[in-house]
Amino acid sequence: GTVHVGDKTYHFPTPDAAKKFAQEIAKKLNLQVTVKNGTWQVH
């Protein structure tokens, strides 16, 4: 899975790992999470 946070991109071996990371970052930074075609965006 891929997660975009601002101008950074993180790659994870599984979709679940990407989802978990995106949700944790969003919670920590009080941001929104959207997913499109398996790519997570934190914004």
Rank of each mutant, 00 (worst) to 15 (best):
L29Y: 15
K19T: 05
K19M: 13
H11R: 09
K19F: 11
P15S: 13
T39K: 12
F12E: 00
K20C: 13
I25P: 00
N37G: 09
V3R: 01
D16P: 04
L31S: 07
G1H: 14
T39Y: 13
T9H: 08
K27I: 08
D16Q: 12
P13I: 07
H4C: 15
T14M: 04
K19Q: 13
K20L: 10
T39P: 02
G1K: 11
T39D: 15
G6M: 11
D7N: 14
D16H: 10
G38E: 06
T2I: 13
D16Y: 07
G38M: 05
T34D: 06
D7S: 14
E24R: 13
K20M: 10
V35A: 08
A18Y: 01
N30E: 05
A17F: 05
T9W: 14
D16K: 10
G6F: 15
L29I: 03
K28R: 13
T9G: 03
G38C: 06
Y10F: 11
E24F: 14
A26F: 03
K28L: 13
T2N: 06
I25C: 09
A17R: 07
D7A: 12
P15C: 13
K36H: 14
D7W: 11
D16W: 06
V5T: 03
D7P: 11
L29R: 05
P13S: 12
A18P: 00
A17S: 09
L31V: 12
T34Q: 06
K8T: 07
Q32G: 07
K28I: 11
V35E: 15
Q32A: 11
H43N: 11
W40C: 06
V33T: 06
G38S: 06
A22H: 00
N30G: 15
K36A: 11
K27T: 10
I25L: 13
T39A: 15
F12Q: 00
Y10S: 01
H4A: 08
A17T: 05
P13L: 10
Q41E: 15
H43Y: 13
L29H: 14
V42I: 07
F21S: 01
K36D: 11
V35F: 15
F21I: 02
V35W: 14
W40P: 03
T39W: 08
V3K: 00
W40G: 03
T39V: 15
F12R: 00
A22D: 00
G38I: 02
K27P: 01
T9A: 08
K8P: 01
T34N: 05
H11L: 08
F12G: 00
H43C: 11
K20E: 11
G1V: 08
H43E: 12
A26I: 03
D16T: 10
D7M: 13
K8W: 11
F21E: 00
T34V: 07
V35K: 08
K36Q: 11
K28Q: 10
G38W: 04
A17P: 00
I25H: 03
N30V: 04
N30Y: 04
H4P: 00
Y10G: 00
T39L: 08
V42D: 03
F12C: 08
Q41I: 15
V42P: 04
V3P: 01
T39I: 15
H43A: 11
E24A: 14
G6E: 06
Y10Q: 01
N37D: 15
Q41R: 11
K20V: 09
V42A: 03
K8D: 06
P15I: 11
K20Y: 07
Q23S: 08
W40Y: 14
Q32I: 14
L31R: 06
T9R: 08
L29G: 05
K28G: 05
T34W: 05
T34P: 01
K36F: 09
A22G: 02
V3L: 03
V3M: 01
A18C: 03
G38T: 06
H11M: 07
V35D: 07
T2P: 02
P15D: 12
T9P: 04
K20Q: 12
D16R: 09
H43R: 07
T2Q: 08
A18Q: 00
G6H: 10
N30Q: 08
A22N: 00
V5P: 00
T14R: 03
Q32W: 07
I25M: 09
A17M: 13
H4D: 05
Q41T: 15
H43T: 12
V5K: 01
V33E: 02
D7E: 11
P15M: 13
Q23A: 08
K36P: 01
A17G: 07
T39F: 13
V42Y: 02
V5L: 11
T39Q: 15
N37V: 03
H4W: 09
K28N: 06
